[in-house]
Write a protein that binds this DNA or RNA. Structure first.
Lengths: 127, 127
DNA sequence: GGGGTATTTAAGCATTTGCTTAAATACTTA
DNA sequence: TAAGTATTTAAGCAAATGCTTAAATACCCC
């Protein structure tokens, strides 16, 4: 709630000094927060979250397996995997012409609570 | 790696039965996984993650405070808040013409590990 | 070398996203 | 009632996204 241009909200940010302090805090967090946002953005696409989950469950999968499971075209799968790889959520291992994708350790840590959440949901609904 | 139309990957999904079993599992998880994806998608936008974090830190804030802190226009802030509210990540309380936004308990649980991650990052880099 | 397989990349398209400006809505006060 | 304040909504625009089809790249085998 703005009173005047010189002061901000009565309730929370009563003066400019407090506002600037808060801004500085956000500036300090800019890079780490940005990298979390980036990872969440990647995981927040339903197709990609499914892929990440399947990679967690199976350990590693190739694009054509993911294509079969998810009933999607191979190029579509590949484009999503490319984003995950560029975002450091997955790693690749090539054997002949087959590429296997797997979660990075970091992405596993980041995503485990969310996988737990929706796998626990299913268990609960079965009870 | 596809061998024939009738069988899938040699390495992981060696037959159609296994593939169908995996597909069924994904279908069971469709709704809970979808709702997690939806929340992550909302949080995965940098502006919105900043808002969610600020709401966690301050407890509640109005659009004009968020506008000041983030140096964004009020309508832009409002549009993001609308998405967060529709996605059940925030709740609203109105006092006169001022609306205060706050995290829902569920979003707090979902996001806390991520907030911890990037606030701990900052602490570590300060040491 | 040719043919086959697996994957990636390119290009095009429709849809979605996030910002801006303007207008509308909801509230308070003189 | 008019003026002021806070917020939401509408509309428009440029950019981004995710899919498709086609082409290119990388590998294997006869």
């Amino acid at each position: 709630m703005k009173q005047k241009k010189q002061t901000a909200c009565i309730r929370v940010f009563a003066n400019e000094k407090q506002l600037n302090s808060c801004k500085r805090r956000m500036e300090e967090l800019r890079d780490p927060l940005g990298s979390v946002a980036s990872a969440l953005n990647l995981a927040g696409n339903e197709v990609r979250l499914k892929m990440l989950f399947l990679l967690k469950e199976e350990g590693e999968l190739c694009p054509c397996d993911l294509s079969d499971i998810l009933s999607m075209s191979v190029p579509a799968v590949s484009q999503h995997l490319r984003k995950l790889k560029d975002g450091d959520l997955v790693t690749t291992k090539k054997i002949a012409q087959t590429v296997f994708y797997a979660l990075t350790p970091e992405s596993e840590i980041l995503l485990q609570p969310h996988f737990d959440f929706f796998t626990n949901q299913t268990v609960k609904s079965a009870l």
